[in-house]
């Protein structure tokens, strides 16, 4: 009797082991796998959360977190381990690292890749094989339409100061703004200039009499310490025009604008999930390779600044912004 039980137990154990051994590789082979290469910041984590929530387990995410020590060898290892159907690149470091990985093996073919949460991603994604992207910069039209609905008055002309290399981006923004009846008036500055502050000051002076609002770009070269202290802040202090900025701090600590329209990182992840599903439905091929615009934003408003400048706003619309700074 005891012998029979032992025999049965051994048989079941062997059967269990066989099933486990057989099912494990099959699971790996059948699962939809995405390799996520991302920076370590909480913003990037939020992007991945948005993506993961929307994928609802239909695609398994495997993450590589890029640090200073990261090398393309980590990607080689992850490719061997997970055989990804798609690659998601979150942040500029991830895009660069993946670029290095592809450059090491230029003749290989690669699964589709989606780059996001990377600044001026257009410049880099074109160099990648089989890749597309979602921009991180919020288009002027999205920001201005959001501001206009809160101001409750027509905003027909919006001024922007930009550098020469951004010409194409500005033209594209002008096209989108036109569909909303908004004229985007740009003043172009050279890519490199020794006197950024005086050039910015002149540009702002020229725009001040010509537009209804300002759209301030997140361009480090135009927002230098000198330019901020000598041009932006004095000009903004005097100006009665509302301004849109792309970083919340530029509405609070550094008072450049009264509206901050910034990327919704969770929404960005959800948008990427939609693109992953599209690729999945298309047998893991990208349906479109055009760089997409971000559709989801977070809105912040500083009503104290608006009141100080005697700019009217609709209080009934304040419930539609993510944060009201008083």
């Amino acid at each position: 009797m005891a012998h029979s039980i032992k025999y049965l137990f051994n048989l079941l154990r062997k059967l269990g082991l066989f099933v486990a051994l057989f099912s494990l590789p099959m699971q790996v082979a059948w699962a939809n796998n995405a390799l996520v290469i991302r920076g370590a910041s909480s913003a990037f984590e939020e992007v991945v959360n948005g993506m993961n929530d929307d994928l609802e387990g239909e695609v398994t995410l495997h993450e590589i977190i890029v640090t200073k020590k990261s090398s393309q060898k980590e990607i080689v290892k992850a490719f061997k381990q997970h055989n990804p159907d798609i690659v998601i690149l979150v942040g500029n470091k991830a895009v660069n690292l993946y670029g290095q990985f592809q450059n090491k093996n230029p003749k290989d073919s690669y699964p589709p890749a989606i780059a996001m949460a990377a600044l001026f991603v257009d410049k880099f994604v074109g160099k990648l094989k089989n890749a597309t992207a979602i921009r991180y910069e919020i288009p002027a039209v999205t920001s201005v339409v959001a501001m206009r609905s809160i101001l409750g008055k027509p905003v027909k002309k919006v001024g922007v100061v930009y550098r020469e290399w951004m010409e194409d981006i500005i033209k594209e923004n002008q096209r989108y703004c036109k569909t909303e009846g908004i004229e985007l008036v740009g003043i172009k500055l050279p890519n490199k200039s020794g006197k950024v502050d005086s050039k910015v000051r002149d540009a702002l002076k020229s725009l001040s009499n010509d537009v209804d609002a300002l759209w301030i770009l997140n361009d480090n070269a135009l927002l230098t310490r000198d330019a901020l202290l000598k041009a932006w802040l004095p000009s903004r202090g005097k100006s009665k025009l509302p301004a849109i900025v792309g970083i919340r701090q530029f509405m609070t600590k550094i008072p450049l604008g009264s509206f901050a329209i910034v990327p919704d990182n969770y929404g960005l992840g959800a948008q990427a999930a939609g693109m992953i599903f599209d690729a999945m439905d298309n047998d893991w091929e990208l349906e479109e390779t055009d760089v997409q615009q971000p559709v989801s934003v977070k809105k912040f408003i500083n009503v104290a600044t608006l009141s100080k400048k005697s700019i009217g706003y609709r209080t009934d619309k304040l419930s539609q912004v993510d944060e009201v700074v008083k």
């Binding site: 929307d54 339409v145 919704d264 929404g267 559709v295 989801s296």
Partner: peptide, 18 residues
């Protein structure tokens, strides 16, 4: 379908021809 998480995200879909 192209699903969005927020009502306000519908307008950009039309604006950008998505």
């Amino acid at each position: 379908l192209k699903r969005v998480t927020k009502v306000e995200d519908l307008l950009p879909l039309l604006t950008f021809g998505s």
